[in-house]
Computed example of a mutant assay.
Amino acid sequence: MTLLSVERLKLFTTRSPWWCALITLTITIGFAALVTANADDREFAPTVSSTQIGYGLGMAVIMVLAALSVTTEYRFGTIRTTFQAIPNRIAALLAKTTVVALLCLVIGEISAFGAWGVGKMIKPTADLALNSTADWINVAGVGVIYAFAAIIAIAVGIMIRHSAGAIALLLVYSLAVESLVGLIPGIGHDIQKWMPFNVAEKFLTGDAGSNSGRGPGGGQSSGVILSQGWSLAYFAAVAIGLLAIAITVAKKRDA
């Protein structure tokens, strides 16, 4: 518990988590308000999924938050102090990852239910009730995806150690690369089926993912053959695998 308390104090005594949380909430809830307010019940009726249309951009901000939680320590040299005080680097990095992932889980749940709540307030007559398991996953699943996305961002931050480089790589990959891979002739579609954020979209939207338009790179979980449960397991495995690689790298090199 001491390690977790130390990491919590380090995280919350900086301004970047607060700003990133505020931006995430503004984006996700703001987009939900815009989409719902402009929805036409005859041509484009608002749905539970459409209230979450800003989740992809919110996730990009979440990954910035997670990456900065690591790279700023390398930038200012505080990571050396941490490793001197806690020689077990695995425990130190796992504690940081746990605290950041839990924060991102909470932010994700607040933003998702906030977006859904705003949509329901703007269009009280629309069919926005959480009547099925799919509807609940659509909303409550956002926080879970944010948590695992944060783990991916921390892993990248540990390996790259520079804020600009880590953030650029994360944003370019999540917002552009996965969508563009599908354009590769012949093999692009087959590769895209297994891209992690594309698979995460399948977990959130199920079979409706290809039409949801809410993913990081345009929102199409096109061609994913895994079920919703296995999609989450796959995304979690990618996140944990990257973290394991990053911790191994951190153990073998100087802080």
Score class of each variant (00 low, 15 high):
L130G: 02
M195N: 02
P46D: 13
L93C: 02
S231W: 00
V61R: 05
A155D: 01
I79H: 14
I62A: 13
T24I: 07
G157P: 13
T2Q: 13
G209E: 00
P216Y: 13
T51A: 02
F12I: 14
G141S: 04
T2F: 08
T71A: 07
R75M: 06
R15F: 13
Y146G: 00
A129R: 08
A95I: 12
T51C: 03
G58F: 00
E7H: 07
W116Q: 10
K120N: 03
V64G: 05
T81D: 15
S227Y: 09
I225M: 14
M121Q: 12
I245D: 03
L226Y: 12
A208Y: 10
L226G: 08
R15P: 00
W116N: 07
M195T: 04
R15T: 15
I191Q: 09
S212D: 02
A153W: 02
A176S: 09
G58R: 02
V64T: 13
L243V: 14
A244K: 02
V100H: 06
A129Q: 07
Y146V: 00
V224T: 14
R80W: 04
S231H: 00
G186K: 03
S69L: 11
I191G: 13
P87R: 04
G141E: 12
L57W: 05
L25Q: 13
N38T: 07
D254P: 08
M63T: 07
A250D: 13
G117V: 11
S212W: 12
I184C: 14
L175G: 07
H189A: 06
G141T: 01
D190A: 14
L128C: 02
V199F: 10
I23N: 11
S163N: 10
A67Y: 12
